[in-house]
């Protein structure tokens, strides 16, 4: 008998938790889903706070994979009113479920891209990341180009990402294809994969982590993340490859929720673009007419891939990368 209250407690607790959890719906705040880095989010917050939206928005940060998963699974039913992520990923979501509204609020004109649904926010650049301590300890020469990473002298000391799982690898692929053509790029990439062995990673941030932890000496990753590590005093350096530095833009888009739309979504989206001057400091690539970046932070050889960066092109580059991987294993 004594045990009866406790056995009743469990269902009661479960019911209560479910009930309590059911509450708490919309509160009028604009929800922004983003896969952007911490500095970007800080700049966005600042722009919104200064623009009079303090307390009227909510930023939900997610990994790239999770955010694209949500976009594909939910479409317009997604909780967020505004999404920021890679432009090509937004385009591919739009192709599956038409879900974004045209941004007709004027403002500065983007340098590239003519889709009225997307406004670029940042340009992510790739670079070779070196652990200077490891290079010295193992008496390795400092590489100058991506092609150098395929040199057998670096066997076991290189980490890169796989193009199937990480879009950071696309920055590497673009540079190789533009410099050596498709067949040449596949050759170089196979050499890099051979050197990387177990260090071909799925997450974009993983090569930097391995360089940082001294697991490898060289990696290919996002330039600004490595620069931040360098600024923190780690024995890390950024090498801009001789093939040039390529970029992937991240854009913002407003979800077209029809009559259920949050009236503040468009004004908030417009206000987000005010973060551009602050963002230019971390991502020094001009994206709009009238913008200029300081020369100090710019990569040595900024380049733009000759073809538009569409999902079709990415799928094609993936098959080249698959071929390189298969060749590296033989």
């Amino acid at each position: 008998m004594r045990n009866r209250p406790r056995t009743r407690l469990l269902p009661a607790l479960a019911a209560l938790a479910l009930l309590a959890a059911g509450c708490g719906g919309s509160d009028g705040r604009v929800v922004i889903a983003s896969n952007a880095d911490a500095e970007v989010v800080a700049a966005l917050r600042q722009a919104l706070d200064e623009g009079g939206f303090r307390g009227r928005y909510l930023i939900q940060t997610l990994g790239t994979a999770e955010l694209s998963g949500k976009l594909l699974a939910e479409g317009k039913a997604i909780e967020s009113d505004i999404v920021t992520m890679s432009t090509y990923a937004l385009e591919s979501a739009q192709a599956v479920h038409p879900m974004f509204a045209a941004l007709d609020f004027g403002g500065p004109r983007p340098l590239a891209g003519d889709d009225a649904r997307f406004r670029p926010l940042t340009a992510q650049e790739g670079a070779i990341i070196a652990n200077l301590r490891m290079l010295e300890e193992h008496a390795l020469p400092r590489p100058k180009s991506l092609k150098d990473l395929a040199d057998p002298v670096y066997a076991g000391f290189v980490s890169v990402t796989d193009l199937r799982s990480s879009s950071t690898a696309w920055l590497l692929m673009q540079a190789l294809v533009a410099a050596y053509g498709e067949a040449g790029a596949t050759d170089v990439l196979a050499g890099i994969y051979r050197n990387a062995g177990p260090h071909v990673e799925s997450a974009g941030a993983a090569p930097l982590r391995k360089v940082r932890a001294g697991e490898v000496a060289l990696g290919f990753g996002l330039r600004h993340q490595a620069l931040a590590d360098k600024a923190r005093g780690m024995p890390i350096d950024v090498i801009d490859p001789a093939e040039g530095t390529y970029a992937l833009t991240e854009s913002l888009a407003v979800v077209d929720k029809g009559p259920a739309a949050n009236a503040r979504a468009l004004p908030v989206a417009r206000c987000l673009l005010r973060a551009r001057p602050a963002l230019l400091k971390t991502y020094p690539t001009p994206l709009y007419h009238g913008e200029a970046a300081e020369a100090a932070g710019r990569p040595a050889l900024p380049r733009v891939f000759p073809q538009p960066l569409t999902t079709v092109l990415l799928a094609h580059h993936q098959t080249l990368a698959d071929e390189a991987r298969a060749r590296a294993r033989r």
Partner: peptide
Amino acid sequence: AYKTVAGLLYERMLGSLP
């Protein structure tokens, strides 16, 4: 370099081209 099915699932379902 040891490919697992969970890794493959992740890469195909939520990779750069989900």
